[in-house]
Nucleic acid binder design. Structure first.
Lengths: 166, 166
DNA sequence: CCCCATTGGTTGCGCGTGCAAGTAATCTCG
DNA sequence: CGAGATTACTTGCACGCGCAACCAATGGGG
């Protein structure tokens, strides 16, 4: 008759969080695999290139780019190093402030991301096939609320954008 | 009047996925920080220890444990190495199959997780303060559906459980 | 005008991870 | 019963990441 008292080893919240983690992991993994299988850029590259594509002149200061991704400044430095090595991005100097350097899309980079986006979106459509428009909207609403709990800022800036980031 | 045609650089799905990623990152980060600030085990340790706490005899085969976490077998080997080094877990041999080894909670490990769970749940309650029970349930439903898209298996096994995994 | 605090970016370092290969035990089936 | 396939776990290796330290360039006040 002892049984150390079943503490609250279980709480609805723990389940919710567990589901969030699993859904996230599954989605990212699936998207990443698909991109690779079809010969597109990696998930991380996708995220970076898409953000550049959507920016004025297809370029962004390193710092701003870092702020928009899940990477730190140092992580971004090296991510851009890799993209530069594969020719999808170039670093451009800033005339008015010699400290800043822009990461800019090369023609190859623009090509790559323009090819990857439709493929990725198509894949997402498959994955969300079971969802009605209203359900997807409701999911958006709930996730946005949760997101705003941590990052009351975020909101602005043409909305997130992420994709299948690492 | 050219403007290379604004492809579908934006799709509702991309936004949804972006929100999922941000919500996930924010939640995990917040939970992790809080645990550390209050002197509890790390997020990864939390996840592993909780699963052991919920298992018969407070132990699990390495393989099964790996399957329940986001780690691979090799990653788990080393995670358990660390937990063993800090005295929260022990490896136990299996009599009937000398290949398998169990990861088992030590008394210290049980203590640690029993202290961490209520703290973590309390924190989650704060974070979800803006949600009504019905909304949380709806979020569960939608996330579960999404999860099942990737892992049609999952479902069973006393339900996820995750927490603030790395 | 110059010194100092601040900002932008990169680099050294250590760590945690996955993959692939390796070892050991078990199972299968001829 | 015994060789080959399979399963459980561990290890070598290479890589990507964040943190903290670092250098360079700005921008305010004295």
């Amino acid at each position: 008759m002892a049984e150390p008292a079943a503490v609250d080893e279980t709480s609805p919240l723990l389940t919710t969080v567990g589901l969030l983690v699993e859904a996230h992991a599954g989605l990212v993994t699936a998207a990443e695999q698909r991109l690779q299988a079809e010969g597109h850029v990696s998930g991380q590259a996708f995220e970076i290139l898409l953000r550049l594509l959507r920016s004025p002149e297809h370029r962004l200061r390193m710092t701003d780019l870092a702020a928009q991704t899940t990477l730190t400044a140092s992580g971004l430095t090296r991510a851009v190093d890799r993209l530069e090595r594969t020719g999808l991005v170039t670093r451009e100097a800033c005339a008015s402030d010699r400290r800043v350097s822009y990461a800019a899309l090369t023609p190859d980079g623009e090509d790559a991301i323009r090819r990857a986006v439709p493929a990725h979106v198509a894949h997402l459509e498959e994955l969300f096939a079971g969802f009605g428009d209203d359900e997807r909207a409701e999911l958006d609403r709930l996730l946005r609320r949760l997101r705003d709990t941590f990052n009351p800022e975020a909101a602005r800036a043409s909305e997130p954008v992420d994709a299948p980031p690492a």
